[in-house]
C-alpha cells in the first residue's frame, strides 16, 4: 500500500469530504510526526508503535575496499518500534505451525 492508496480508502469511506481534504489530513498526520522527531520529541502511538530519535556518536569507520580510516560524524537517526498490539496481530495464533513457544522461556 502506498500513501495515495491510503488516501483513496479513507476518501471512499467519507464520500461527504473532498478527496484533497483527505489528502491534506493524511499529510498533516505524518508531518506532525516528522516535526516532533525533528524537535527531538518522541512519538508514542499505543498499540501501533513508537518513534524516537537515536544519537549515533562520531566514530572512525573504514573504507571497506581500501581499508582506509574514514571519519564519520555524529548523527541523529529516526527509530520505530512496533507496539505490542501490532506485533501480536502479526503473530496471531495459527499464523505459524507448529507454534513452538512465545519466546518467554516457558517450555
Amino acid at each position: 500500500m502506498i500513501k495515495s492508496e491510503l488516501v483513496q480508502k479513507i476518501a471512499e469511506e467519507n464520500p461527504n469530504l473532498y478527496h484533497r481534504d483527505i489528502e491534506h489530513m493524511v499529510s498533516i498526520v505524518f508531518d506532525e510526526i516528522v516535526d516532533a522527531l525533528a524537535r527531538g520529541d518522541r512519538v508514542e502511538l499505543r498499540g501501533f508503535g513508537a518513534f524516537s530519535v537515536k544519537h549515533r556518536p562520531a566514530r572512525t569507520g573504514r573504507n571497506p575496499r581500501t581499508g582506509d580510516p574514514v571519519r564519520i560524524n555524529e548523527k541523529w537517526t529516526p527509530f520505530f518500534k512496533a507496539g505490542k498490539e501490532l506485533r501480536d496481530r502479526l503473530n496471531a495464533e495459527g499464523r505459524f505451525s507448529p507454534h513452538v513457544n512465545t519466546g518467554q522461556g516457558k517450555q
Partner: peptide
C-alpha cells in the same frame, strides 16, 4: 527534547 507526542496531538493538528 523530552516531550512525548501522542494521538491527542495528532488529533489536534487534524
Amino acid at each position: 527534547a523530552g516531550k512525548t507526542v501522542t494521538r491527542a496531538d495528532l488529533t489536534e493538528a487534524v
